[in-house]
Design a protein around this nucleic acid. Structure first.
Lengths: 242, 242
DNA sequence: GAGTGGTCTAGACCACGAA
DNA sequence: TCGTGGTCTAGACCACTCG
């Protein structure tokens, strides 16, 4: 049970903007007014507002104020570290997860290299495809360190692995590196996805770390070309003279 | 001339990590020690360290300290709002920009819609391809509001438009939305890129805004499939009970 | 218990925008 | 000039890690 004040403020406004209660272009109360209204200090208000700005909810302009951005125009950002379950819940699409494998195996050479472990160390190998509107358009292949995750079931894989890790095992997922590229479709792609006559797929490789920087998961998320979209929100870091 | 203290601290450590002077895994001085060393308050130290953490340089662990992450293993992050010139400088690749057009034209219907302006309003249309190791692998098509950018030359387009906008026109570039997808290659793609027999290209659409939220630039960055790579660093937002 | 990072406060001064 | 957000300070208490 956390009770960060600035997180409450963040959530208040994120929700108001998500639901459309606050229209794009409208002006937020000033930082001083918010500090007064929430009965908190201005620096705490600023933490909440900065989080909103980082996530593309608002734009802050010196001397003028903070303004709601048009978030609805673009689809939801897939950037960031969000699980498929969390994402599909936000999108409200009817989707289904098909679990083809949830097995504990010794890591092969390729996987050991990606996870930076010794070959033959035990890992969980999970193969799932995501079906949306009746078509299997994503193939997720996950490898998780068995040393850290003692048990894993098909049921967990069908629901949400992250939820299990965070809420049951109390693991602290911290950060991930992702690499997106386009590659030739493999036999496995054709087997587990409805690919039609595509020759290529989009591959999103993910390297997920715990708080202590342990690399505990390597993921290949393979997407059908015509259904792939990645949305990114980027702020320009103020350039200062070198 | 800015002199943010926390930015100096950020740059000090970013450079040390970039150059390898600080090895991955090594521990930074504690926040109190840094505050003492820089003769600044701890909150200011924290701003600098948080920026390092956001950009994937370090990992902060409560009760333990801040640790340098392994940034070199993955190529440079292309995420964020960075111009091609800034990027190629960091990569140190021999690359060349070919400018095919820098012209002021009335916006066509499609472009007007992307830029959310009236049709036929004047825009700058810039067509450039990026040649790396002798192959043209990126085609950039930019549309910029002529209302905001009165003048634009081939020389500027060959160098860096962003540099011109920020340093000459003193425009404040604030944020951008980017959408990555894969689409069929057009005739133009074949004309301005060395595509071989590819049927598709990766398209990165960018919508760039000024500080006052004006949408002033729409960009299509079209990449050859086999040369495209997008690297993203993501931190998991701490989940709090709803 | 000592040291770490996470949060929060109540002030202060500044640069910028608008009236 | 006045209100805005940007930066900074010097403290405080907390939760966490580790010896």
């Amino acid at each position: 049970m956390k009770n960060n004040i600035f997180m409450s403020l963040y959530k208040d406004y994120a929700e108001q903007i998500d639901t459309g209660a606050l229209r794009p272009g409208s002006k937020l109360p000033s930082e001083n007014e918010l500090a007064e209204a929430y009965q908190i200090s201005r620096e705490t208000v600023r933490k909440g507002l900065n989080l909103l700005a980082q996530n593309g909810y608002i734009n802050k302009v010196k001397g003028k104020g903070s303004f709601v951005l048009d978030t609805g125009r673009l689809k939801f950002p897939i950037s960031g570290l969000v699980s498929y379950k969390e994402l599909s819940e936000r999108l409200g699409k009817k989707s289904r997860t098909l679990v083809y494998a949830t097995e504990r195996v010794p890591a092969g050479g390729d996987i050991a290299k990606e996870l930076r472990i010794e070959a033959n160390q035990p890992v969980w190998k999970v193969i799932r495809s995501r079906e949306i509107d009746g078509e299997r358009i994503i193939l997720d292949i996950d490898y998780l360190l068995a040393e850290i995750i003692p048990n894993l079931t098909k049921d967990i894989a069908a629901d949400s692995i992250y939820q299990y890790l965070e809420q049951e095992l109390l693991l602290k997922i911290s950060y991930a590196e992702k690499v997106i590229s386009v590659e030739r479709a493999t036999n496995m792609d054709h087997q587990y996805m409805d690919l039609k006559d595509d020759t290529h797929v989009v591959v999103v490789r993910g390297y997920v770390h715990l708080e202590d920087t342990t690399l505990f998961q390597y993921t290949e998320s393979r997407h059908r070309l015509d259904k792939f979209q990645f949305v990114d929100f980027a702020r320009r870091i103020s350039r200062v003279e070198a």
